[in-house]
Amino acid sequence: MNPRLWKERTTVFILYGLTGCGGLVLAVILTTVIMKGAPALSGEFLFEESRNFGLEGGIFYQMIGTLILMVGAAMVCLPVALGSVLFQTEFLHSSKLKKMFRFLIYSLNAVPTIIFGLIGYLFFGVLLEAGVSWVTGVLILAVMILPTLHVSIHEAVESIPDHYREAGLALGLSPGQQMRAVILPQSVYGIVTGTLLGLARAAGETAAIMFTATAFSGVRLPQSWNEPVTTLQTHILVLSQEAANPAALTHAWGAGLVLLTLVLFLISVTLWMRTGMEMEAER
């Protein structure tokens, strides 16, 4: 056979092999969580509180805790991200400053989450005197997901066609009116997808909240602003450290499946929205 053809075929074969191995590993991960987690799921598991240090009962308050932290973080983060994007696109005209801004946001995105935990505790836990509490957790996660929302909203605002703005300017709109009447309605997609991705990131985060916002047992709903919550993430963390105990592992896998479903659902919705938008743009 022609040696060049032979080389072509073997290389493509190797590429398929490498991709296949990578895909296989990732498929194994998903099926493992589903297979191991599914037996733990039941009405009792989802709607009862955990008992006996997580070995019996369910994960009801853990789910609520995860929801409180992620929704709170998104609610705190959204206005800041939105305002910050609008300032960058509507008021900043120097391209140097814009680049600088972009660099800062990208750097923030790269900060290891455990550092958000450390410094966030100093600012919110100690200076605000919130201590180890859900408020501290919400604020830390809000800072952590800021770049996610920022980048997504920024993309949407940047992709608004120029003639939309020009129409607004021709009508004599002030920057504030321009934002309300033109920019915001036209970038709703970016705001929604960015928020969903931010929620997914916050729901999956453990390191930043494990020593700043949560307690393991004996916690239900926080009664005041400086009480800790219990979350799915930290519940799995504590249970997985007792990996020798089958009951602990079963509960950990069950909680893991619930968490994975939540996170993957949020990301799927954004992917679905984005492909819909791309198809609309192609039409």
Partner: peptide, 10 residues
């Protein structure tokens, strides 16, 4: 997007 804690558990 799979949470790090799940990789940890695995």
């Amino acid at each position: 997007g799979v949470p790090g804690i799940l990789y940890g558990l695995m």
